[in-house]
Design a protein around this nucleic acid. Structure first.
Lengths: 218, 218, 218, 218
DNA sequence: TATGAATGAGGTTTCATTCAT
DNA sequence: AATGAATGAAACCTCATTCAT
């Protein structure tokens, strides 16, 4: 499923690679993509040299973290779907477990730089498209069920998720951790079917928000 | 109203100062507070030296832009209030004219650096407190009118505004400008009185979100 | 003996560090502490980055050079003392071999900036106190021997040494190297026991001249 | 006597010029020749523009201060000579009133930059030569009187004066003001006729120390 | 292979000097 | 003529990336 750029690694090399990716994911999510490479290396417990051996520059690190985060997120959704067949509930649960969602938001919708990198790399399309397809399926089902208002699109949901999660992220520490649920609650109330107001503007297509290799219309 | 840091400037100096502040406001809002000083100077059409003569370092530039943006925003609110007595409508209109609101969001809730600067500077309290008081008044009135749900606070609204506007900000260019209204619509539906769901967590106090010089209880 | 700030360095790093310190010592002694860092790096044959990796700012470079110079000077004194038991002769020889003495003078008595740096750093006290104790011992012995007038103190000698060596330093190149001995000769004549004039003012305490962490009275 | 570069000035212009020169003299003497021009202007109570109108660059300011300081010093000597015919006493008194002497020392022997400027400017020779001639006369007389040892030259005295005064200058504030007399005392003891030691090296010619337009041998 | 040292380009800031008011 | 604003070159320092051990 992945582009699998690292066919076989010695056990210790593998361990280092994992540490770096994990550290980078956390750091990118919490502090953005511009954190010094030296610092990422230090937090991962390796030298910069090792980091650069694995990822020749910052862009390639961002790319790998993004690919992997998409995959994790897709796995999250799968897991939820296993025990939860209601689409609205699935969306709610997904938003509640925001961890990987937040990373993806930061590395796609919320970082112009990351967006550019990913947009330039067609090998990334697979993971991305699968995610979009999945989200799209959920929304359509929730709308068919009559639980979600029908005038919002997958792209809209992408925007909203990104906005909310980013917002939550920068809150001062003490408020931060307890808050996501609250604002997701408000948002869901807005998304719920039966809302009275008519939304201005038009629905956003997913490709407009994330990046621009729209899958050839099947 | 102003802290008036520059009692009297020669006409040309005034012009340059204004250009710098305007450029910085745009640039900070669009691209964040870390844009190179040289670039701000270039876009403002002045030499770096001029920029530094007026604002001895980046922090002081951020500070001035923030103060001024708060003042502009307060003026916006006043203007709306003049022709609009309904609190809910006032909030809606305010959110629709998001320009200065977006700047303020970026420079308070959304930038840890800016937040730190402002928190360290008591001279900033005047503008800040006036804004908070105004927002607070609006919310209380809307809740008293029965148009806004009563389980949200001024701090909550601050968080939401910031989250939304920040999110909107990073959308890809073509989508960006037409979008705010749409998501504000969704949000307002969530905020509207009569919503069914019970919000988790607790209301956030304004000082928790922005910064920490709560006005001495009068 | 050393504060040993660099437990173990790779051979090449060690070589670079030494080059930098040596270059800085020369340059500080000849041209003062404000010589551009780029230039020090260039003369040491390394990039600026290397200089800054080892010494995060100018102050820390000054500090290291100072510590090391004190240590060299103490070693000089030890060496002289090994073959020379007469205190007056020791002082004379010490003044004749002015190299490290001049560096120390420049970095303590003669540079307000360096003095401030060193005064702020208690880890520096060891080297400093040892030097002062040594000098003090010499003077007391010379006075006990009846070779040095008894109305001068260690602090006085510090002032005089600094003044003379600084003066010598700025002489035009061709005159410079042959001169110290001459003026030291004049000075020593003034210091010699049996001088007729009575000195105005009072003896200076060493701490007044150098800096202000007087060793806790034992 | 002066090179008189400013034939006639309006009263206010004259006043500004004087303020600038006085401020610059103090500042150069206390803190060296590299103090920011803006700061000199501020302390003089004029704008930078005014400073630059009068002195087109730093070098020319240094030059003017130097010329004037020489003239003041010569006047000092004259004044002393009026009531004091003993050459040794004259030298002693001169050293005791160190003010202008210190400025001259800083701007000639002690500042490589200033020395270069003055050396490059033949119009400066007049003041300089007169001073040297005067000092030379005093020394010769003191030696003829048998009060000063005969193996020192005018150049030597220049070196010593400069060294001592510079040294005094950089002493920590509390010690500084009360000290010059003390070290001058020591020095004079060394200079006094009857000293036992034989000086190493050779006498320095005045031109070697100050700068290099040796007056055509008359 | 892993490490951390070295490099230098680029961003920040200061200040000598010029120029508009 | 006086002022203080504007300029840009040069110094400081950081960090992405390359390279020696």
């Amino acid at each position: 499923m992945t582009t699998d750029p690292t066919p076989r690694l010695r056990a210790d090399a593998r361990r280092n690679r994992d540490r770096i990716i994990n550290t980078a994911r956390t750091v990118f999510t919490e502090r953005g993509t511009e954190v010094p490479m030296e610092e990422i290396a230090r937090e991962a417990g390796v030298g910069v040299g090792t980091l650069y051996r694995r990822f020749p520059d910052r862009d390639s690190l961002i790319r790998e973290v993004a690919v992997e985060s998409f995959e994790r997120l897709i796995a999250d959704i799968r897991e939820i779907t296993e025990h939860q067949s209601d689409a609205w509930q699935t969306i709610t649960e997904l938003l509640d477990r925001a961890t990987d969602l937040r990373t993806v938001a930061r590395l796609t919708v919320l970082s112009p730089r990351a967006r550019e990198i990913l947009a330039a790399d067609p090998t990334f399309d697979t993971a991305h498209n699968e995610f979009m397809r999945t989200l799209d399926g959920l929304i359509k089902r929730a709308q068919a069920d009559g639980t979600m208002r029908s005038d919002v699109s997958t792209g809209d949901l992408g925007v909203i998720i990104a906005m909310l999660l980013q917002g939550v992220q920068v809150l001062p520490d003490p408020v931060r951790d307890m808050m996501p649920g609250r604002y997701i609650g408000l948002l869901l109330d807005g998304l719920r079917a039966g809302s009275t107001s008519e939304l201005p503007g038009r629905a956003v297509r997913a490709e407009e928000v994330i990046f621009r290799h729209p899958e050839p219309e099947e």
